[in-house]
Design a protein around this nucleic acid. Structure first.
Length: 274
DNA sequence: CCACTCCTGCGT
DNA sequence: ACGCAGGAGTGG
């Protein structure tokens, strides 16, 4: 479900509610998360005070004063909400974190369970979990863009598929990969090595641009994304190609096409993107 | 590189 | 009934 901008929006909407709270309870459902961990592996959080709620790539990181914490990944269908402790549990609620003296709690709801919950007990463990993720396109520096462009230039894979590889560049998902390639006027089917370094850098800047705008719009609620307050974003009204198969390209008025790459839909304009 | 996997829900 | 869904990993 969420890409970098949606996770960032969730982080912002949750931040003031949870930072500074002391954790009084942690509950998880009977289902195993993708990274195996027992309930007791989360109970160490009880009693800790939340120092920070941060994000890297599509990972939400809840860290306590004791420099340990838990990472939340939402997969395709995950949602995080703050709800009254007394509120009926939504179907597919898999994690609840309660706070001392509060009548509300944080809940992770994830129908497909493609998401994950990864506790860490030291900063070293935290680093290990995040190791391998490429530079975050939401906070790109010019040097990072040059570095990522060099990697892409050497690749035989299709550029759209590369943009989805979190180990090359992170935070970009299917929506924003399509949008950025349209902005940069690059055909999604080109191999990385076939595209000029200048155009590769252009699409990386475009990733940062379209995702920054998406953050301003509180994310893209295409299917079922909601922020931490249960509100929809509005960026779906600003998409140029994603989800618009058959509609006319804003630039040339020709119909937008849909193809499948690496089992994911790609939307693009075959006339504007060359 | 591709195919396939994890899982549920929704629209046609 | 079937195809599709914003993610990510695996094994051939």
């Amino acid at each position: 479900m969420p890409e970098g901008p949606e996770v960032e929006t969730i982080r912002r909407t949750l931040h003031d509610r949870v930072v500074g709270q002391s954790i009084s309870s942690v509950w998880r459902s009977e289902f195993a998360f993708r990274t195996p961990s027992k309930t007791k592996d989360l109970l160490f959080l009880v009693g800790d005070r939340i120092a920070e709620l941060s994000r890297f790539a599509k990972v939400l990181i809840l860290e306590t004063d004791n420099k340990r914490g838990v990472m939340l990944r939402l997969g395709m269908s995950g949602r995080i909400v703050i709800e009254p402790t007394s509120a009926v549990l939504a179907k597919h609620t898999h994690l609840r974190i309660g706070f001392e003296g509060c009548d509300f709690e944080l809940r992770l709801i994830d129908a497909r369970r493609f998401g994950d919950v990864q506790p860490y007990k030291t900063l070293k463990e935290k680093e290990e979990i995040l190791a391998g993720l490429g530079p975050d396109a939401l906070s790109f520096t010019p040097d990072e863009i040059k570095q990522v462009a060099r990697v892409i230039k050497k690749s035989q894979r299709e550029i759209k598929v590369i943009l989805l590889d979190q180990n090359v560049v992170s935070s970009v998902g299917n929506i924003y990969a399509c949008e950025a390639l349209f902005v940069a006027k690059i055909a999604p089917t080109h191999k990385g090595c076939e595209v000029s370094v200048a155009k590769i850098e252009a699409v990386l800047y475009a990733c940062q641009e379209v995702m920054s705008k998406a953050v301003v719009n509180n994310g893209t609620s295409f299917m079922s994304y909601f922020d931490g307050n249960g509100r929809k974003g509005s960026n779906q009204h600003h998409l140029l190609v994603f989800g618009r198969e058959g509609e006319s390209c804003d630039t040339c008025k020709r119909p937008i096409k849909r193809i499948v790459q690496a089992a994911r839909s790609t939307f693009y304009c075959s006339y504007c993107q060359t």
